[in-house]
Every structure is written in C-alpha cells, then in structure tokens.
Design a protein around this nucleic acid. Structure first.
Ligand SMILES: NC(=O)c1ccc[n+]([C@@H]2O[C@H](COP(=O)([O-])OP(=O)(O)OC[C@H]3O[C@@H](n4cnc5c(N)ncnc54)[C@H](O)[C@@H]3O)[C@@H](O)[C@H]2O)c1
Ligand SMILES: NC(=O)c1ccc[n+]([C@@H]2O[C@H](COP(=O)([O-])OP(=O)(O)OC[C@H]3O[C@@H](n4cnc5c(N)ncnc54)[C@H](O)[C@@H]3O)[C@@H](O)[C@H]2O)c1
Lengths: 211, 211
DNA sequence: ATGGCTTTGTGAAATCTTTCACAATGTAGT
DNA sequence: ACTACATTGTGAAAGATTTCACAAAGCCAT
C-alpha cells in the first residue's frame, strides 16, 4: 500500500511534507475531514495534484467526503518514514550549527539531535541546550555505537567533502549540508545541500527579469 | 542577449548559480577556458544540459574551444542580476537571524545586509558584526528610505505572514523565509521559503524507501 | 430506497524538462 | 592553405510532471 514500484519525484515528496504541515493545522483547529481542494488551496497547488500525489501510494480518501484528517496524517507520516524516530548528528558547532542544535522545530517531526561535534578544542565541551559539544574525533565511534541516521553538516566549505567522506566511511547514508560546496558521495548515500546564496540569487534573478 | 522571451525554469536558474560557483573555482585555479563537459562534471549534470541552460540567454562559447572562464562569469553574473549590489534586510535577530546577519558568505555575491530588526526590546541595540539590531517599528521607514530589495525572515512561524504583509505593503518585492509556515503574497512579489524540516523529511523518505 | 450532490482516483492529454545527435564553426598543427 | 580534431548551439526525440476530465463511489436529504 505504501511502497510504490515506480520512482517518486522529489517534488511529490516535498509536497507530501507540506500537506502534512497543513493537515496538522487542520487537526489543531478540530477539523476532522478535508478535501483535496482545501489542501490544495493551503499549499498553492491544485486538487488534481494533491490527489495524484497521494494516489502513488494508495487510496486514502472517501469519495464525496474527502480525507479523514487524522488518517491522512498517519498515512503521510508512514509514507515519509516519520513513524520511527530519526537520530541526527550535527557536525560543526559554529554559528549555524549552534542554532540548529538548539532548534526545537526538528524534534516535533521525530528528528532528535543526539550529538554535536566540532574540531576546535575551544568549542568542545560547550553546552548547547541539553548537549555538550564533542570532539570530531569521536564521530566514527559514536556513529558505530549509536547509529544516527542523518548527519547535518555546518562546517566551512572546504571541510565539507572530507567530512562527507568520513561519515560515509563510518556508515552514514544521509547528509544534509549547509556548506556552499558541491558534494559527492557513493551510490546509496543521499546528499542534500541547502545553499542560501543560491536562494538569494534566484530571488535576484526574478527581481531582475520581472515576475 | 540576456533577456529571454520564454519563461525560464527555476531549475535552470539554480544551475546557473551553481555553474557560477564552479567557474569561480576554475578562475581561482588560473584556468582560462572551460568546456561544457568540464562544467557538467563539477555540477553532476550533462554537457548538453549546460549548453542548453546557457543557450536560453545567448551564445557564449567558442566552438572547438569552450567558454572563456572570465567571460562566462560576467555573463552569468549579468543574467542573474548580480552586477548590481543587493541590499538585504534581516527580520528577526534570534539564533538563526543572528547567524545570517554575521554570515560573510552573502557579501561575496553582492548581497549586503543593511539592517537587522527585532520586536523584542531586549534585542534592540544588540551589536551583530557591524550592525546594531533595530526595532521592528523602523522597518517601514527604513524600507522607504533605503529601498532594500530583499527581506530575509527569521521570525517565529506565526509572525511570518503578518511580517510578509508589512514588508510588502512597505514596497518589498522579494522575501526569503526560514519560518516553517506557508506564505502568500500578491502577484509581483516573489517568496521563497527554506524549510529545514522538509529537507530532513525528504532524506527520511529516501532512507525509508531505498535509494 | 431514490436522486442529487460532492469528491475521489485515474487514464489520457498537455505541458515542461532533459537528453540525443549532428551540422556548424572554430582551433591547432603541419 | 589544408586537414584532423574538438566543441558549441540547437532542433527533434524522449522522458517526466502536471493538468484535464470524467466515471465511480459514497454522502445526505427526502
Ligand atoms: N552562518 C550562516 O548564516 C550561514 C548561512 C549559510 C551557510 N552557512 C555555511 O555553514 C557553514 C558553517 O557556517 P558558520 O557561519 O556556522 O561558520 P562558523 O565558522 O561559525 O562555524 C564553523 C564551525 O565548524 C568547525 N569545524 C571546522 N572544521 C571542522 C571539522 N573538520 N570537523 C568539525 N568541525 C569543524 C569550526 O571549528 C567552527 O566551529 C559554512 O560552510 C557556511 O558557509 C552559514
Ligand atoms: N534555529 C534554527 O536552527 C532554525 C532552523 C530552521 C528554521 N528556523 C526558523 O527560523 C525562525 C527563527 O528561528 P530562531 O531559532 O532564530 O528563533 P528565535 O526565537 O531565536 O528568534 C526569533 C526572533 O524573532 C523575533 N521576533 C518575533 N516576532 C517578531 C516580529 N514581529 N518582528 C521582528 N522580530 C520578531 C524574536 O524577538 C526573536 O528574537 C523560526 O520560524 C524557526 O522555526 C530556525
């Protein structure tokens, strides 16, 4: 039911994550049922798109009625893999790493920061929320011992690829990087990069060429 | 030459920003000429893709030789609108806003932070790098006076839409938001949102369903 | 139970994006 | 000047994604 044979486009997965956010709002407001049209309006898409996105994974609605809010929340959480907790480590306890380590928005979705690492001895031991910064030398041992599933990289650009290599060698299969550096990893490892300069440049392009 | 009649896909603009990054590396290494194939290899795409992306905007290469690194850098900077400086304001001087305000990576691309604002009186006056945090009450006056072109939002989710409305009313046409909230703006205003939870959820999906 | 109304799920069509493949154009060596 | 070679620029083909449009299914009022 929840494992499509076909490859699913990233845009679909991204929208599912978005729908989940809206569904949680509908739930908080006490709404029990929602139509593809309502969901589409919140998310700036179309009702056909919403139905098509869901149809890749199964059939979740009731014709004439719409989707049960609670049911659809569980279904999407299951599709995305959010029914299990996701231990995450953060590497680089600088300005952005420290902000991320203390950010509470992750936890609500099942992402738990279980370790923060830095190469700078003056940062090691520093308390960030409930966690103390650990030395980067512990990364390999901690990955082996605690099996965090995702590594978030907040290190300088030139340290990013070597760190990807290290965590991949240690068994990590997913990396989210904030460093403005192109990253490569072997097949089977998923890398995502958030590049703020690129986001600003897309805005600059759209301002320059009219909307 | 640089203003296509056709609509250009966001994916193309995103890749242009990426090519620019690689070109700057080639330039730093003293390379004067680069082929679409080399550029493609750095960026994990194909040479045909590189040539097609550029062809929307004109003809920048020499057959048999490739592209002049310096020339292509200026051409892409012109396409993206980066030949002019982009004054930016940051709204919300919390953990992420403070990190962004002190981030030096923006400046190199022509994005200059000209103001940081917060609603919390205890944050107003705080020094972030060269800038002092100002009261959010000054936002409208400062936009009118200094005409920043992009507003970066680092405020809590429920303050995001009201703040979009304020800055748009004050004349802003582009917003980059870090708040996990869906944002709407009138036609003619470009909004981009970086949602870290969604990025992690896409990783969770790909780990859950195999790569 | 029936009929009218609403909304889903989904093939098919339309649109958008990427890849292919090659003529055109230029370089470089002789 | 000629030849061999490299690489661009681009229509056309292939592939991917979105939108359309409608039959099927279920609710609700009577
Ligand atoms: N600050 C921002 O707003 C911002 C925005 C976008 C992108 N980024 C990117 O995020 C990354 C971090 O930025 P920042 O502003 O937090 O920088 P920062 O200098 O404050 O922090 C970087 C941290 O990484 C640590 N580090 C360096 N090498 C390491 C290694 N091999 N292992 C472990 N730790 C190591 C340093 O000791 C430092 O504490 C950079 O790549 C930057 O370009 C930052
Ligand atoms: N910290 C992170 O790593 C992180 C990661 C992803 C997303 N975000 C998002 O970024 C936003 C900011 O996060 P943060 O961790 O910096 O939070 P924070 O609480 O540290 O900072 C928010 C700041 O916004 C200010 N503020 C509130 N209302 C305002 C208003 N109307 N005008 C001006 N300023 C106002 C507050 O005074 C505070 O200083 C949130 O929406 C958060 O969900 C944060």
């Amino acid at each position: 039911m929840h494992s499509p044979t076909k490859h699913i486009a990233e845009s679909t997965v991204r929208r599912l994550s978005l729908y989940l956010r809206f569904l949680e709002e509908f739930e908080a407001r006490g709404q029990t049922t929602v139509s593809s049209g309502e969901l589409a309006r919140s998310g700036g898409t179309t009702s056909a798109q919403v139905r098509k996105d869901l149809s890749f994974f199964g059939s979740f609605g009731k014709r004439g009625l719409g989707y049960g809010v609670k049911d659809l929340i569980s279904s999407i959480r299951e599709i995305l893999g959010l029914e299990q907790p996701w231990p995450v480590i953060i590497i680089g306890a600088g300005k952005i790493g420290a902000a991320l380590a203390q950010y509470r928005g992750f936890t609500s979705r099942g992402f738990h920061v279980v370790g923060v690492y830095d190469a700078d001895p003056s940062k090691v031991g520093m308390q960030l929320g409930a966690l103390a910064v650990r030395s980067d030398k512990e990364i390999e041992r901690d990955i082996a011992a605690h099996k965090p599933r995702i590594a978030v990289l907040a290190v300088p650009a030139d340290a990013a690829q070597p760190m990807v290599d290290r965590v991949v060698a240690a068994g990590m299969h997913a990396v989210l990087s904030f460093a403005p550096a192109p990253l490569h990893a072997p097949h089977g490892v998923t890398i995502r990069a958030v590049n703020m300069a690129t986001e600003l440049e897309i805005l600059a392009y759209s301002l320059t060429h009219g909307v």
